[in-house]
Design a protein around this nucleic acid. Structure first.
Length: 500
RNA sequence: GGCGCCAUGGUGUAAUUGGUUAACACGCCGCCCUCUCAAGGCGGAGAGUUCGGGUUCGAUCCCCGAUGGCGCUACCA
């Protein structure tokens, strides 16, 4: 199909997939889907020392988790394979030879020390740091002679004698004065081609029509445009995405906490929440009054032209808000599935758990889900079901005060008498009746009635309604769980028993 | 030092692309619900669009400059 847009996401497998890169991948993917184009994944592993296979695997897993599938790339292949730069070295070499033969590039024999000295001088003179061009005019014969004599050389591109400009879909025309960009090195003296060179080659060879990437590449773009020119190729459209910042307005990094997609998943952030959030971070739908978007809706609404040029501060609060939204909207069975691993040691392994346990856990989740922003907060919120130390309540001043009040002793003993005289499971209705009787008998009501009971049962004076809690205590106590859940009776007994 | 990018409430984005009481969401505050927490419902505060010039009858929007933030400035990616 002629004129079909082709975009790529080209990460280096040197670490975990960062949210910034995830957003870049998302925007590429959305653009491709919206325009009916092709989304391609390419692995930039020319840095052999830092690239690791496990990172590559992780990266692809993260992309799939987000729902971003690629049309061409590792595992899919396609007409432009291979999609790993380390497997394309021969291709790069051929192209370098061509450039050298056509005198679009030349050998540079300058030493690192020479270059460094020039750089220092330029800074001292308030001049742009550009290569002096010492080897630029070496004759072909001289160049060949030195090379065959075994002198190490790098290959440099001959930058054209005019300002370099490119079009950016987000920023418009960007132009760099000619004197500020110098002949870039294409191939190191080690023979290894440089990143900026291979990216360009690959983008051109893979017929990428729109390069959508981070704005840290803006300054590299003129050099890349020059490479296109040298080969006589038409440069693609560019779209440079702004940086994601931390709350201190510095580039978002590990310093700001979790930033990798994998860690978000581990914390219990839903992929749809992350995708939605990332989409909103630097893009706004027309009108700007909608916040909730499914992946399909994003595909429909997404326009590169509407992407913001200014950097955006990453906001956990909003991500959490979206996550809570999607957690509530999610299919309960799926939430059970996802939340289960967070209860290791409290629940049996998921695959060996019977339907009663699953059902019970489902009730637990229905109760506690509204109280959390991410799944990994669940065990903390519901911890009192599994571990309850009545003695610890005395340590808290506020709770101790409630417990010390006169009404408390009366309320608790009235309730305990009823609990003790009852056999079998306690229903919420039964419990409610007891509470009413206790109220009538002791005269305590409202907080004076509920707080002591709540503390005796849960260890805290705040928490979910008793109606919902009682069945979880009672049913839980009958299940075979790695950590026993105390029944209402066991709780009351245990609580009263702690006092001598 | 050089070059580039950016600039709307605390945060993310809107504003029929020069004419609005500058909108929406997160967060915050208050009220309702309630034994409490969370959720939910309702309401409120918070920017005159970084600053200074210009163009114009009229600038958030166009131009210039300043300031600030960020990025690049490698034989890193």
């Amino acid at each position: 199909m002629p004129g079909q847009p082709r975009v790529r996401f080209a990460p280096s497998p040197t670490g975990f997939l960062h949210v910034g890169n995830a957003r870049t991948a998302l925007y590429n993917w959305l653009f491709a889907c919206h325009t009916g184009g092709v989304f391609l994944l390419r692995i930039e592993d020319t840095d052999l020392d830092r690239s690791e296979v496990r990172h590559e695997t992780q990266l692809m897993e993260d992309l799939r988790w987000l729902g971003l599938d690629w049309d061409e790339g590792p595992g899919v292949e396609g007409p432009h394979a291979p999609y790993r730069q380390s497997e394309r070295l021969g291709i790069y070499r051929e192209h370098t030879d061509r450039l050298l033969a056509e005198d679009k590039a030349y050998r540079c024999f300058c030493s690192a020390e020479q270059l460094e000295a020039e750089r220092r001088e330029a800074v001292a003179n308030h001049q742009p740091q550009v290569y002096s061009g010492r080897c630029r005019s070496l004759s072909a014969a001289e160049s060949a002679r030195r090379a065959s004599a075994g002198k190490p050389f790098a290959v440099r591109l001959r930058i054209p004698e005019h300002p370099l400009r490119f079009h950016d879909l987000i920023r418009g025309m960007v132009e760099f004065p000619q004197e500020t960009v110098s002949d870039p090195i294409l191939v190191r003296s080690s023979g290894m081609p440089v990143y900026n060179y291979v990216v360009t080659l690959d983008d051109a060879l893979m017929e990428i029509t729109h390069v959508i990437r981070g704005d840290d590449h803006i300054s590299n773009t003129p050099k890349q445009v020059a490479i296109y020119e040298a080969f006589g190729w038409k440069p693609p459209e560019f779209a440079h995405l702004s940086t994601i910042l931390g709350s201190d307005r510095e580039r978002l990094s590990k310093r700001h906490g979790a930033t990798s997609v994998a860690s978000f998943r581990e914390m219990g952030i839903l992929p749809e929440a992350l995708v939605n959030y990332l989409a909103l971070l630097g893009w706004g739908a027309e009108g700007g009054t909608r916040e909730i978007f499914s992946l399909d809706e994003l595909v429909r609404e997404f326009r590169l032209e509407r992407v913001t040029a200014s950097p955006a501060v990453f906001d956990w609060e909003k991500l959490h808000w979206l996550n809570r939204h999607y957690l509530k909207a999610a299919d309960p069975d799926r939430v059970v599935e996802l939340a289960w691993p967070h209860f290791a040691g409290l629940l049996p392994p998921q695959d060996s758990a019977g339907p009663e346990i699953r059902a019970w856990f489902g009730k637990l989740l229905a109760l506690f889900l509204p109280a959390v922003s991410q799944l990994d907060e669940l065990p903390g919120k519901s911890g009192f079901l599994f571990h309850f130390d009545p003695a610890a309540t005395d340590a808290n001043e506020e709770k101790a005060a409630i417990l010390a009040s006169e009404a408390t002793a009366k309320v608790l003993s009235a309730l305990a008498a009823r609990v003790r005289s009852h056999s079998g499971q306690v229903t919420p209705e039964q419990f409610k009746a007891w509470m009413n009787e206790t109220k009538a008998e002791t005269g305590a009501k409202g907080k004076d009635l509920f707080h002591p009971v709540r503390i005796a049962l849960t260890g805290s004076h705040s928490g979910p309604e008793f109606d919902k809690l009682i069945p979880i205590f009672e049913e839980g106590s009958r299940l075979q769980l790695p950590t026993h859940v105390l029944s209402v009776r066991e709780r009351i007994e245990g609580f009263l028993g702690k006092q001598p």
